[in-house]
Amino acid sequence: MKNWPYTLFRFYVDGFKNMKLGKTLWLIIGIKLFIMFFILKLFFFPDILNTKFKTEAQKADFVGKQLIDRK
């Protein structure tokens, strides 16, 4: 087991190489994650509070005001 990092590396490499259906599934996972993180998250789902404010106190004030205004 002294060369375990290499054994582990080969385990994954051989596993990925010998995949059949797995290659299609990984392609789907890759496309899905790309759409989710590089299209949806980037262009459609900004974190409203992090985008508008820098400090925690500013965020707290904003949310507090929002709640008070909606009563």
Partner: peptide
């Protein structure tokens, strides 16, 4: 896998008051 992460996106964008609260 990861289809649940989309709900976390929505917390930050659509439900920011809730997420903070």
């Amino acid at each position: 896998v990861a289809t649940g992460i989309i709900m976390e996106f929505q917390f930050g964008t659509n439900w920011s008051n809730y997420s903070w609260f």
